[in-house]
């Protein structure tokens, strides 16, 4: 066990050294043009921004419980809106409220994959709905989502799945959000804190000789970019996908897919880079990165916008909320076969 762990550590150390060496070479090379990059130069310095604007951030919470005859899902989404004056948070409001009620939803006869999709789609729909309403009602200059601004491939059910209609509705929600943001001149931004994306590596790989590509094959964008970027720097801007029409999700977003852009930013020295996606309607990567940088540099070890942290805390579902909802349900429904807990949740001696 100890030997194996020591071996693992050595391998990771070696990999990190290789990433670091390659990153150093790429920085020194200082290429001006990269294929598929939407800007010249690999690395851009981010200018801090004096915040005098209204920023919204949306996050959702989810809790689920499987019963013998149905699956219960509770979701909640909240939008936190901060008004900044001279980079200070001057005031804040919440939409729809400080602690919105969790919405219950139940589906029957789903297999475990479908249940997973169902949960995720319900939560996403709630988040996008709240984001959209928040833009309409409170007219922020920026709206931040906790995560991507497009659905993930893992969220897309198969064609014949009973939850596919839910996915289709979600696509409509996203499109409504994009058009609302465009119309209200609100910049839509997605901040992905633990991205496993490899899009950036795919781009720069094309410029590297074969012997240098090996280390990238075993890296995510952020694990490599940690060595490439210094604090206060970002990558060039790039499209979410190089083949929007073939991409599993982007192709479903129709005319909006070319407007989904992304970049990586490293706000502070001691934390990893963030992946930032944005809808390229009004502002460019420079402006968006300045905002994210200014919102994220308040903690030298945890670079993440304060407003998203607040939204996460507001939206998080407590285990006790689910327990209360289940108790309430059982009290009202009485003892019915559908309401029995799963056997694994009601073992006799454990």
């Amino acid at each position: 066990m100890h030997d194996r762990l020591a071996e693992l550590i050595d391998n990771i150390k070696a990999l990190e050294e290789k990433r670091s060496e390659l990153a150093q070479k790429i920085r020194e090379e200082n290429r001006e043009v990269y294929p598929e990059a939407l800007e010249k130069n690999l690395i851009h310095k981010v200018e801090p921004l004096e915040l005098n604007c209204r920023v919204a951030a949306v996050d959702g919470g989810l809790a689920a419980q499987e019963f013998h005859g149905f699956d219960l899902v509770l979701t909640r989404a909240v939008s936190v809106i901060f008004d900044y004056k001279n980079s200070k948070r001057a005031s804040h409001i919440y939409y729809p409220s400080r602690i919105p009620d969790a919405e219950p939803d139940a589906l029957t006869a789903l297999d475990s994959h479908e249940f997973t999709w169902h949960k995720s789609l319900i939560r996403l729909r709630k988040e996008i709905e709240v984001a959209c309403e928040s833009v309409e009602k409170h007219k922020p200059d920026y709206i931040l989502l906790d995560g991507s601004i497009v659905p993930q491939i893992s969220d897309k059910p198969s064609e014949d799945s009973p939850v596919r209609p839910l996915y289709n509705k979600l696509l409509e929600d996203y499109k409504r959000l994009y058009s609302t943001c465009k119309e209200k001149e609100c910049q839509l931004i997605g901040v992905i804190k633990d991205s496993r994306g490899k899009r950036f590596i795919e781009i720069i790989e094309k410029t590297l000789p074969a012997h240098q590509k090996g280390v990238l094959a075993t890296s995510h964008d952020t694990s490599f970019l940690h060595f490439l970027l210094n604090a206060g720097e970002r990558t060039f801007e790039f499209h979410y996908s190089n083949a929007e029409k073939e991409h599993h999700v982007l192709k479903d977003l129709g005319e909006w897919s070319p407007f989904i852009h992304a970049f990586y930013i490293k706000p502070v020295k001691d934390d990893r880079p963030l992946r930032v996606e944005f809808l390229k309607t009004h502002r460019d990567a420079g402006e968006v990165s300045s905002l994210i940088y200014s919102l994220s540099t308040i903690n030298q070890k945890y670079a993440y916008p304060a407003i998203l942290i607040e939204a996460d805390m507001r939206a998080a579902m407590d285990r006790s909320e689910l327990e209360r909802a289940c108790r309430n349900l059982l009290l009202r429904a009485g003892r019915r076969i559908s309401f029995l807990p799963l056997r694994r949740d009601s073992r006799s001696f454990r």
């Binding site: 948070r89 308040i298 903690n299 304060a306 607040e310």
Partner: peptide, 28 residues
């Protein structure tokens, strides 16, 4: 809840700014 984790408070306030400047702490 904002003031439950000492290390987070220390980190956010390292620059001499109070946590409540960036977060709506009183609401919690």
């Amino acid at each position: 809840r904002y003031f439950e984790r000492a290390e987070s408070i220390a980190e956010y306030e390292r620059g001499g700014e109070s946590l409540s400047k960036n977060f709506p702490t009183t609401d919690w």
